[in-house]
Design a protein around this nucleic acid. Sequence first.
RNA 1: GCCGCGUUAGCUCAGAUGGUAGAGCAACCGCCUUGUAAGCGGUAGGUCGUCCGUUCGAUUCGGACACGCGGCACCA
Length: 658
Amino acid sequence: MIALTFPDGAKREYPAGISGADIAAQISKSLAKKAVAVTLNGEVVDLAEPIKHDATFEIVTRDDPRAITLIRHDAAHVLAEAVQSIWPGTQVTIGPVIENGFYYDFARNEPFTTDDLPVIEAKMREIIAKDRPFTKEVWGRDEAKRVFTEMGETYKVQLVDAIPEDQDVKIYKQGEWFDLCRGPHLPSTGKVGTAFKLMKVAGAYWRGDSNNPMLTRIYGTAWHDQKELDEYIHRLEEAEKRDHRRLGREMDLFHFQEEAPGTVFWHPKGWTLFQELVAYMRRRLRADYKEVNAPQVMDSVLWETSGHWGWYKENMFKVQSAGDEVRDERVFALKPMNCPGHVQIFKHGLKSYRDLPLRLAEFGVVHRYEPSGALHGLMRVRGFTQDDAHVFCTEEQMAEECMKINDLILSTYADFGFDKIIVKLSTRPEKRVGTDEVWDHAEDVMQRVLKQIEEKYGDRITTGILPGEGAFYGPKFEYTLKDAIGREWQCGTTQVDFNLPERFGAFYVDADGQKKTPVMIHRAICGSMERFTGILIEHFAGHFPLWLAPTQVVVTTITSEADAYVLDVVAKLREAGLRAEVDIRNEKINLKVREHSLAKVPVLLVAGKKEAAEQTLSIRRLGSKDQTSGALDEVIAALVDEAIPPDIKHKAKASASN
RNA sequence: GCCGCGUUAGCUCAGAUGGUAGAGCAACCGCCUUGUAAGCGGUAGGUCGUCCGUUCGAUUCGGACACGCGGCACCA
């Protein structure tokens, strides 16, 4: 006999080998019908699996959130069966569950096209309608390999080989069709339901390695019911509406063109936004950092010293004179990062321990030859501006500097409304420089800082460790923020570096008169200003807070009788420092409201004959259908106050409370 | 870089078994003086991504390239 503990705490005894299905049937007919799996000690297992040991036990019904993984996983199996029945000879590989859905990778000489998707989907619905049971079998390793070899499923043979010796080779059958799979599964294909959809076809490397052959991947999404599926499709559509590339065009912020792949043409409005962002960062740096600017084009010997010329060359732009005649034997390169430049500045003139920590910041424009397939709007470009800084300090100062950077990063994100941050510590990778002692020490320090961060910001952040993900020259913190619709963006980074200062022979004179190599901390907050701008566009869906909005206010007329008044209002707004535009076109107010709303102007001030006479304004906020009205001076004062950037507001508050 | 798809007016998109193209919005010009998300009329606008090939003839078919899109790999 075995004892199972139910969610309500009740403990019951059953003969060993009883299945979840049996237990559900004993409890009630309806439960037996709804049950799709059980959990044993929290782990989801097949309904038919014989239970052999004491455990906490729970029945998982199809509506259970935990069932969604099974639905998606089974949908992947059904997809694979459908594809093989339509195109025999197609090899199956893997088909895992992913966020919001599933995929399956196929090896086939002919590629799939999007036109194939409805055909496959129809076949899947047939298979699901047949409602055949999923049954598990455990095969011998050699038998499995023999069967898959005979079937021509060479990838499956490789997968069998990859299963650790101590694990069973499990086969799940759904009628005739079967697949190597670790499970668990629903009781039958019918339980997959109809709330699924094949989304797209794509290429993907076998085992995620670009040296391997490329397979064809079919992505699908699957949900408990149609309502969830519809909601998901709706969410995708909403996300598409806030795509920064689309808003960039609609709001006239920037464009790309083929002569400059991966580099941005900023239009006046986009550049205003960008500059507002830079101005904000600059203010945040004023207290602790010294801003510098290092050359864009430098001799490649510098990159040889830094090591980039060896391992990063493929990603660098070479710069030469364009004439036929070689004017200079030397090879120059566009900088792909700012660190070597900052080390040169550090090295210029003797540094004392009294100069440390020395924090050099630069809004450095870097160019990297990113693979063509990686380019993506503002998010991944070949030329971009980093809010970069390098802190030169002693080992003793390292922890405090990391914490200081952390505070700066988190408070910056908070100012943009990002309040869910993930901080991850990446530790030593396999390929690295420096002794184990140095790494031990550095990681120890970083661990302690991470603890401190947790204690200080526990409610706002989640933390984690990424083993082996550190830079080759030192461990790092990575800061990932979540935007308004839950997507994650890795932006900030703090990396300690024991390598570069030494390579360049940078040193400071310590209190004892000895030359010492400083520790260098690389750090960025936004990462790439271009990308951060893109993230903000999507985060706010173009509805920027007043301080960031490229055009903050449009003042417009109802009749031309108010023209003079409105021109005066705009002059006053500009005088007060607001980015205000005037619209005295001879158009209906309906049209003007529509146009400025579509342009996502936060505040629309409207004046007709009445307002002009009374020196008032009608105020319409973006996203609101109503208007308020106010006296001219008061309206301006309120807008001026609202347009104060958050950092300045905090400061004013702090000094007021002192 | 790899796999697949795409590129037609400023934008969104239609179109022809191969005979040099069309709509809506925007633009421009008029009329309308307007009260909070499209007033009315008219005009103009295109080397159908680039190059090469097939063809009497190519925007349409084929190829290469460029750029883009969706993934994969990459993001030091």
